[in-house]
Design a protein around this nucleic acid. Sequence first.
DNA 1: AAAAATTTAGGACTATAATCCAAACCACGA
DNA 2: TCGTGGTTTGGATTATAGTCCTAAATTTTT
Lengths: 192, 192
Amino acid sequence: MATKSERTQQRIIDAANQLFYRKGYNRTSFTDVVDEAEVPRGNIYYYFKTKEEMLKAVIKHRMETTTLMLSEWEKSIKTPLDRLERFVQIMYDSTPALLRSGCPMGSLNVELAKDQPELKSDAKQLFDLFQQWLAKQFAQMGYPEEARELSLELLARGQGIIVIAQVYQDPGFLERGTKEINRWLENLDRYA
Amino acid sequence: MATKSERTQQRIIDAANQLFYRKGYNRTSFTDVVDEAEVPRGNIYYYFKTKEEMLKAVIKHRMETTTLMLSEWEKSIKTPLDRLERFVQIMYDSTPALLRSGCPMGSLNVELAKDQPELKSDAKQLFDLFQQWLAKQFAQMGYPEEARELSLELLARGQGIIVIAQVYQDPGFLERGTKEINRWLENLDRYA
DNA sequence: AAAAATTTAGGACTATAATCCAAACCACGA
DNA sequence: TCGTGGTTTGGATTATAGTCCTAAATTTTT
């Protein structure tokens, strides 16, 4: 089992992760994290000397859980189409959170792209992770050439739908959008 | 001609407008604005008592210029298809800015949607403005029923393409994306 | 069990941001 | 010309955020 120290660190990362998502990176203060994680003020600096470091840890954490999720999908889901649709599914399943705080990956990138290039390149890794996994599925589906472009298109569609659904607080738009993506994927699969 | 005071106020709004776009609202400080507008420190508070007020003025300004732009398009461009394509065109024309700072309207909404609901509802007006104008064009094109949904879909496509193009710093993706949107619009028009 | 290393804890310190203020300045009508 | 209202200044003030420090407590190692 994890040591107490490891668990404390994890609590901090979890708290920061949530807050960065809900409030955004820049608007989240150390005080916020400290309160949420229920760690004494000064102690947090033992684990993370700067806010940047904390963000990097959060991104690393997201990378790990995402990697795990994707590899499990790969293990448990047989066809590329079903895997791609599983990806779309989490969008739909996350409706309430997406309407509240947008896409965790997209909004972080949009925020950091402004004026914080070093951090942005870290956040971009998350996109890369999904992008490469999606491309792999498209390639297996029979589109090795177009795999990258298709994966970007799928990501773009998702991002767009989420932004608009959030702006208009419209879960229906998210639902119709994901259905439409599925139709598109099924057509791609059919005519591969 | 505008009074000196009016011109000063306008300089402040222009500076804030640019900075909010380039750095984001939360990361822009009064000092930044003061420097950019070349107005003495204290003077800015004569015009805007709070940062919120300044944002509202910026949004108002954007609303005005956008309204003007859209009504000019309506005057000078004859068919709904051409008008819609004109909209797509500014996306393409703005490639460098979009790659640098994302969509001015989208990124502002994404930023403010996190934890700043009052401001968010102001920023949303910008979307409404475009959305209603786009819907009008779709209605004229022959889709009165689907006008709203189509306008949201067009906005979503634009947002998605911009986010991905920015994340991957890929002007080509933006170009292909806008071309694809145009194809879609032309098909809609053809089979109206 | 003592020594060494890690972790906790709270507060101090510094930097930066937002906001306010009061004196000076200026334009213009009485 | 004087005074009055709007405008300009720069610095003062306050709040908040980020960072650091040091001593105590705890855990680990010897």
